[in-house]
Design a protein around this nucleic acid. Structure first.
Lengths: 346, 346
DNA sequence: ATCGTCTATCTTATCGATAACTTCGCGGCG
DNA sequence: CGCCGCGAAGTTATCGATAAGATAGACGAT
């Protein structure tokens, strides 16, 4: 008796399988499998109804692990983030997930912690675990590892956090920095300061490089780059530390937070913004629109960026050519913190 | 010949299994399995070395799908987000992932789109797919579905986006609103305006309710609640629409963006902040520290929130009691946008 | 009437791992 | 000397699904 009870209990707890469905519907498990795969289209009316009823009654749902093992088709993709990643990644994730869903895939986001080699190791595990059909990495990998991973599963590495700063990705596209400098130069600005933020970010190094190149290309003067920290205090200090006779009339900051702090520092010194000094940020923080003066910034369409990254992965998986895009995902938003240079401050 | 070539090619492409390892090491597959599970401790020196060499040579990695099917232990948990979720979720994810890693689990983040019932449906699939040992849902579910899901796999529902606004979660904790109001009332404020944001957010409704209850409890006067949108313009308009003889001296906004816009509106009207009107926000946007005046706000420790949510899930999985916390994850950050009431504006 | 074709269905094998049980080899002890 | 115990290694079964091949029945062509 006791034995029987235990069995019953187990039957209640165990999840139903296609064999259970088959038994209650009075068909073979293969008929159930076919019913599921072809949505009942290759099944005759009579057993089809019984199968449907059985599925309903037992509340059956397929075991994806078992299916994945047999087919290798899992319908799942993974996006890998570095663990300390920024808020923007939510929007990238949203865009990537949308693009994947349209192609019939589910997306899992996985954050990777640890050193670059540890991350690569973990990524190899994921690539070979048989759970995912493709990986979209927004974290850089050991380059040797990367080839190894890609030999098993399609992998696309987004550029956002690429340690080697290869300018392959949209996120590393710092062209708005050039656009801002060009425009301000046309308004008479000659001496520029760059407040760069934490150099461990690829994007920071990329913008810094663009800043230097553009200054040089246009024959302008750089008052240098201040880097090291994302803290507002660093931006403020960068401005307070300028000599009194500094000819800086334009400040390019790596994000809106640093830009706002720089404006604060400028006002502390009695400089007017933008009459005495122009300041531009990056990120389109919503508060920037309500600062006095409203903040010129760069708006990045992270959702589109995520969509494009995913499109690249899907193209690789289908062995198609990777799509190219003419439109940039970043655009300058001109507001009141930038304006013509003050001739008296040259 | 051709046949042979194809076979060779397939052998190169196919991922190695424990059987491949066993063959090249000259042992049975079970010995390999034991070696892997017990880290070589129950294997004699001689075969152990050969197995290790074989694993190294073939670059073997276990197929998690197969293992999961046999054991049900997968070592993976999933966190479910609603698709349009906020930036804060990155930090929650980070915290939750950390807590899970400490307990020996990997975490996948999955965003769910669609209506509440569609999300529940998809969640049921995930719960029954055999891929995850537990689910942490930050999205509300049909309540009937929830019981069903939980019967198969441990599930914890965070309150952040709970449609029914049951005050179970830390994120719905609007007590800082009460704290702000109490403090301002002690400084002589009598009439309060609430700018609430989009009411489809649980947290918004929660704060609105706390606002109303606190006003009533302290016998203060409410100038009403403005709700409907997260756009800054809505916050600005809320202030501009106040009658000239309005006795409002304190404005509680649902986030820093609305608060900054409200300050802007107040300044447009010629009101000084905080001398004529005090304004408080929510979210601790970094720019708030650099606004003139610097913005009083509420700082929420989202990482801790994620950690706590995960701790709840882990407790449920271990059938332990859920931990309780005495410390709030939200704290008021007092800055210059709030101050004593101006007696002449009563 | 018989045969072949087509389709729905059933039976058996398989994916890659672990569980359960069996066998083997070695050393100690009566 | 033979038996027993014990741990390592081997054999077979199993998880839940799909693949491949076999079978049965309906139907049209010969």
């Amino acid at each position: 008796m006791e034995r029987e009870e235990a069995v019953i209990k187990e039957m209640q707890q165990r999840r139903p399988t296609i064999y259970d469905i088959a038994k209650t519907a009075g068909v073979s498990h293969m008929t159930v499998s076919r019913y599921l795969r072809f949505n009942g289209e290759r099944t005759r009316e009579d057993p089809r109804e019984r199968i449907r009823a059985a599925i309903d009654e037992l509340d059956y749902r397929p075991n994806l692990a078992a299916r994945a093992m047999r087919t290798t088709r899992t319908g799942r993709l993974a996006i890998l983030f570095p663990s300390g990643s920024a808020a923007s990644s939510v929007h990238m994730l949203t865009g990537a997930t949308e693009a994947a869903r349209e192609a019939g895939y589910q997306v899992d986001a996985i954050t990777l912690a640890g050193s670059s080699s540890e991350r690569s190791e973990r990524m190899l595990e994921l690539a070979e675990a048989g759970l995912f059909e493709g990986l979209l990495a927004l974290t850089p990998l050991d380059s040797e590892r990367q080839a190894q991973i890609a030999s098993r599963v399609p992998v696309v590495v987004g550029a956002e956090y690429d340690d080697e700063m290869r300018g392959i990705g949209d996120l590393a596209d710092a062209s708005p920095v050039a656009e801002i400098i060009e425009f301000l130069a046309a308004q008479g600005h000659r001496t520029f300061l760059h407040i760069a933020g934490d150099r461990s970010y690829t994007t920071v190094r990329s913008r810094e490089q663009t800043f230097r190149e553009t200054i040089e290309r246009l024959g302008l003067e750089s008052a240098g780059t201040v880097a090291g920290s994302w803290l507002g205090e660093a931006g403020q200090k960068a401005v307070l530390d300028l000599p009194d006779d500094s000819r800086v009339t334009a400040i390019i900051a790596s994000n809106d937070h640093l830009a706002a702090a720089a404006i604060h520092g400028a006002l502390q010194r009695g400089w007017r913004v933008p009459q005495d000094v122009s300041v531009a940020g990056w990120d389109n923080n919503p508060l920037g629109e309500w600062l006095p003066p409203t903040l010129t910034t760069v708006k990045v369409d992270y959702m589109e960026l995520g969509r494009r990254s995913m499109a690249r992965l899907l193209a690789v998986m289908r062995e198609e050519e990777e799509p190219t895009y003419s439109e940039s995902v970043a655009a300058v938003v001109w507001r009141d913190s930038t304006g013509p240079a003050n001739p008296s401050r040259k």
